[in-house]
């Protein structure tokens, strides 16, 4: 078996200190293969968002190891993690998080600006990405002129424009009706299948999770089960 793309080893995360300290993660072990489509589920406060922030290199574990391409992310500083995100990660949020009063094209171009790409290359890549999500004709529209589904597709275009290794989607269908949700899920599935992007998705809805190949259930700061099988860490936590 090849080295996993992502590995969490005994990861804990504690917020606050002393009396008010709250342990959000209590020792999570997780391995994700390259090209997988993973759905992370669980009730509120189960630690799935904290895990997602750590996987997105936005936060660091309090203890334990986070290996990304065999790199110890927990040892990197703020700016090094930013560069890692820039190089390998794409983000899709529940609230779309597009820049207001900014055209779809400029929104999609944004990550390329930080990569220092030339203007013509930026344009071409951004238009290609918009084409992949089926919005090539809408490049000059601002978020206010687009529907929720379209905004989320612009956000996906922005996430994939750099050709990332991993796409992190935090409840990408949370603000959409079921028809748009299906469209977004099919788009993510197609990207995973055709471009080989590893997709990590947090969701509440089982029918969205069904699009994933691997489903990870969280409960009380631990992985409860993976694809229905009880996790070893959950057993350890229970024991």
């Amino acid at each position: 078996m090849a080295e996993p793309l992502i590995a969490l080893k005994a990861v804990t995360k504690t917020f606050g200190s002393g009396q008010t300290a709250f342990q959000a993660l209590k020792g999570v072990d997780l391995e994700i293969e390259e090209g997988d489509f993973v759905a992370i589920m669980g009730p509120s406060g189960s630690g799935k968002s904290t895990t997602m922030n750590i996987l997105g290199c936005l936060d660091v574990p309090t203890s334990g190891e986070f290996l990304f391409k065999n790199l110890h992310v927990e040892q990197l500083d703020r700016d090094q993690r930013a560069l890692l995100r820039r190089r390998y990660l794409g983000f899709v949020f529940q609230g779309f998080n597009l820049l207001a009063r900014t055209s779809a094209l400029e929104n999609v171009e944004l990550p390329l600006l930080y990569r220092g790409e030339a203007k013509s290359a930026r344009h071409k890549a951004a238009l290609d990405a918009l084409d992949k999500v089926g919005l090539a004709d809408w490049w000059d529209h601002t978020p206010a002129e687009l529907s929720g589904g379209q905004q989320q597709r612009v956000a996906i275009a922005r996430a994939i424009v750099t050709g990332p290794a991993v796409l992190l989607a935090d409840e990408p269908t949370g603000n959409l009706d079921s028809e748009r949700s299906v469209e977004i899920m099919e788009l993510l599935t197609a990207l995973n299948r055709d471009s080989g992007i590893t997709v990590l998705m947090v969701t509440h809805e089982p029918e969205m999770a069904d699009y994933a190949r691997t489903i990870v259930h969280f409960r009380d700061g631990l992985i409860d089960r993976i694809n229905g099988e009880a996790s070893s860490s959950a057993l350890a936590g229970a024991g």
């Binding site: 936005l58 995100r85 820039r86 190089r87 998080n97 820049l99 944004l110 990550p111 930080y114």
Partner: peptide, 8 residues
């Protein structure tokens, strides 16, 4: 958003 997509 800028920080998330990789601005230092």
């Amino acid at each position: 958003i800028r920080l998330a997509i990789g601005a230092v």
